[in-house]
Each structure stands twice: as C-alpha cells, then as structure tokens.
Nucleic acid binder design. Structure first.
Length: 280
DNA sequence: TTGGGTGTTGAGTA
DNA sequence: ATACTCAACACCCA
C-alpha cells in the first residue's frame, strides 16, 4: 500500500488525533508485528507514555513520546484508526493502544506484513531500520551530485535503484513508474548509462510527482485510507500504473506491463524508448 | 478450483 | 555487488 505520499497523509491526519494522548495499555493480538524489543518490554515501556508528535521518515511513521519513539512501517496494507473503545474491533486489528481518554489507536493489517520497533528517544536513527535509509526526497541531502554519484556506481536498472530505500527513501512501485514515464526514461535503463541531465530530470520529476500526490492525499488502488478512513485522490492522475492496455495520455501508444526485479512495471514504449537497457 | 497477482522488504543462495 | 527465489500473509480475480 503506502508509499511516501500515503504515509505523509496518514502522519498529518493521525497527528491531530493522537497528540497529547496518554497510553494506558497496549494489547497485541499478533506478536510478529513487534520486531523490537520483546512484546513484554514493548508493552511495559509504552504504559504511561504520552504521544507528542507523529512524523514521517521515508515510508516510516514515527510516534514520538516522552521517553520513546515508536517506528512503524505499514508495508503493503497496514492502516491506523482512532476509535472509541466501545467500537467493535475489525477482523484484522493486531495492535491496540488504549488511551486514558477512552479512545484507542488501532493498527489493522490484512496481510500482517507491517512492523513496529520501539527505541529510546534519540537512538532511533542509529538503529535498524532507520539507519539504512537514504535521504528523504524532500530533504537537502537528496542533491543532484549525490544522486548522480549513486547512479554512476551501479549497473542495476534505474527502476530498481529508485525502489532501493538506501538510495532515496519513500518511492515505491506506483511513484517510480509514474516518475519514469514523465521523465521519459525506460525502466530497464542501466543506471550508470544515464547522463547527469537525465539524473537531474528523474530527481525533479520524482519530487514533483510526490508533492502532487501528497496534495491529493495519496493514491487509493485497493485499500489505502488515511487515519480518518478517507481515500486518496491521486489515482485519477496516474499515467501508467495500472493503465496497461490503455492509450498513453501523452502519445496514444498502448501502455505495456512487464516485470522488472519481480515487480509489475508499467511504461509507454514510445515515450520511454528502450535505449541503453539490459534487455534488447 | 487453482494459480497468479497485489502499493514491501528481509533473508538466503548462487 | 547483484539477481533470483522465497518468505512473511490474506484476499481477489481470471
């Protein structure tokens, strides 16, 4: 499900609902969600903690509390909601945070792929998983020089490089395909075959696409909703993702779907000509 | 009915 | 270093 724009949207909506709420109790129905520390330490540490801030790093949600930071990744289908405790739990609710106000923060995840890590405040950036992330696309560290250097150092397909969270944090399958279409770069193009101009173009387009998607509240394909249960609107703006067999919005050619690095990959063979690619 | 696909990412293997 | 397969899971669809 969620890539940067969806997580950003969830962050914003959740922030207003859980700020200054104090956790009285944590109930874990599917322990595998909790990756660190043990479920006992996790639950114990959170008791009495007040949430002060909800922020985003790449595709991660961060709940900053008095002494701890909860680092949460939604993977494919994770969702949060804030409900009165009287409201019956949904089928795939796996973690419930009881607030002293009587409300509950609930984590729901059909496929149970999501993860939670709890760290002492201030240490979270130095531990897995956050210490492996590259710069956020909107942050200063994502410079043209940095990105071009990264591309020069590898022979992987550009699509795979953009999906690599240690290069840049936040892009996923939808926004990579959309970015490469607008930047007019074939997804299989070798990263080290791209010119500095092309690298710059990919970078600028990615930032533009992500900003637009944030403004639209993210993309809802199947199941994504924000912290208030609202859908995103960016699916109306998609040019290639999920558009296979339909005409390209730019040139009218048929959008193709192939596999790149095991992921479904959508592109226009006319707007994104296959040059300097792996497969000839 | 069954197998393939789904917005993610880690591990294990060559 | 990189690519491939599998794994974690549930559901949808042809």
């Amino acid at each position: 499900m969620p890539e940067l724009p969806e997580v950003e949207t969830i962050t914003k909506t959740l922030h207003q609902f859980v700020c200054e709420e104090t956790i009285e109790q944590v109930t874990i129905y599917w322990p595998n969600i909790i990756k660190y520390p043990s479920i006992e330490q996790f639950s114990d540490a959170l008791q009495g903690q007040t949430i002060h801030e909800v922020t985003r790093v790449g595709k991660f949600l961060l709940f900053t509390m008095d002494d701890y930071v909860l680092v949460s990744h939604l993977r494919m289908e994770g969702k949060y909601s804030v409900d009165p405790k009287e409201e019956p739990l949904k089928k795939h609710t796996h973690v419930v945070f009881d607030f002293s106000s009587g409300k509950q923060l609930r984590y729901n995840d059909v496929r149970k792929f999501g993860t939670m890590h709890l760290f002492e405040k201030g240490t979270e950036r130095h531990e897995k998983p956050l210490n492996q992330l590259g710069p956020d696309p909107f942050e200063e560290g994502f410079t043209h020089d940095y990105f071009y250097e990264k591309l020069q150092k590898t022979t992987r397909a550009i699509k795979n490089v953009l999906l690599d969270q240690s290069v840049v944090a936040g892009l996923g399958n939808i926004y990579v395909d959309e970015t490469l279409h607008i930047a007019q770069i074939h997804p299989l193009t070798l990263a080290n075959a791209l010119t500095k101009e092309e690298a710059k173009r990919i970078q600028e387009v990615a930032i533009e696409v992500l900003s637009l998607a944030v403004k639209q509240g993210g993309t809802t394909i199947r199941s994504y909703v924000n912290g208030q249960g609202e859908m995103g609107m960016f699916q109306q703006e998609l040019h290639v993702y999920g558009q296979e067999d339909t005409p390209c919005t730019t040139c009218g050619s048929t959008i193709l779907k192939i596999k790149v690095g095991g992921r479904g990959t959508h592109f226009c063979s006319s707007c994104q000509p296959e040059e300097r690619s792996i497969v000839g």
